[in-house]
Write a protein that binds this DNA or RNA. Structure first.
Lengths: 111, 111
DNA sequence: TTGACATACTTTGAAGTTCAAGGTATATTG
DNA sequence: CAATATACCTTGAACTTCAAAGTATGTCAA
C-alpha cells in the first residue's frame, strides 16, 4: 500500500482533528464547523463524517463522552487525545510537503 | 454531488496536467516523472494513472498520438489541450484555496 | 396536543477511486 | 534463447463518499 491513499484521506481527518484541537465538540457541530470553514468549497455529509469519527475513536486519536446539553438533548462529545495531536502534527507536515510539491510543479509551468 | 470529491481527486489529475504542461510525454514516463517528483511521499501505480489518462482524454483535457521511439518501441504521447490548461489553472486555484483553509485551521491550534 | 421543524446520531446501497496483480507485447542484453 | 526492462492495458478487492433514509428527542406555534 502506498502512503498516497492515506495522504489524500488525511485531509478529511486532518480537518476534523484540527477542529477538535481547538476545543472538544460533538459530531453534529463538527460537521457544521467544517462546512462553514469550507466556505462553499465543499460540503461534507453526515454519512461521511460520522464513520470517520468512529474510525478515529477506534484508532485512539479521539475519545468520546456522552453529555447532556442544557436543552436536554444528548450529545456525543469528541476529545482529541495525545496520540491524536501527534497524528495532527505529522499529518499537517505530510500535507504541507504534498502541497509544496504540487505548487512546485505548477510554478515550473510558467516560470 | 459536492465539489469536494472532485477537489480531492483533482490532486492526481493536477499532477498529471502539470507534468504535461511542461512538455508532452508518454504514459510510462509520466508515471515515473510523478513518482520521482513525489520523492517517496507517494508512489502511483500504473493501474491508477492509465485510467486517469484515458479519462482526461475522453474529457478533452489531453489529446494523444502514437509515436515510434528511436528504440523502435511504440509510445502513446499525451499533449495537454487549451481546455486542459484551463482546467489546470482553475484546479490549481481551487487546490490553493483548500490548502489555505487547512493551514488556517492548523494555525488556530497553536496561535 | 398535535404537527412541523431543527437537532443529533446512525446505517445502508450505489458510485467512484486506488491498489495489487496480472496480462500482452516488444526491444535489449548476456 | 532466456531474462530483464520498457510500454501499454484491464480486473477484482478494498476503501471512500454521497445521497438517502431511519431513529429519537426537544421546541414552537396553532
Amino acid at each position: 500500500m502506498s502512503p498516497n491513499k492515506e495522504l489524500i484521506g488525511a485531509s478529511t481527518r486532518l480537518l476534523i482533528l484540527s477542529v477538535l484541537a481547538r476545543e472538544a465538540n460533538y459530531g453534529y457541530a463538527i460537521i457544521r464547523a467544517i462546512n462553514q470553514e469550507g466556505e462553499g468549497l465543499f460540503v461534507w455529509q453526515e454519512g461521511t463524517v460520522y464513520p470517520i469519527l468512529h474510525k478515529l475513536e477506534k484508532e485512539g486519536l479521539v475519545r468520546t463522552q456522552w453529555q447532556e446539553a442544557d436543552t436536554g438533548r444528548k450529545r456525543k462529545y469528541y476529545y482529541i487525545t495525545a496520540t491524536g495531536r501527534g497524528a495532527l502534527a505529522t499529518g499537517t507536515e505530510d500535507w504541507a510537503g504534498f502541497h509544496k510539491m504540487i505548487t512546485a510543479l505548477g510554478e515550473g509551468n510558467h516560470g
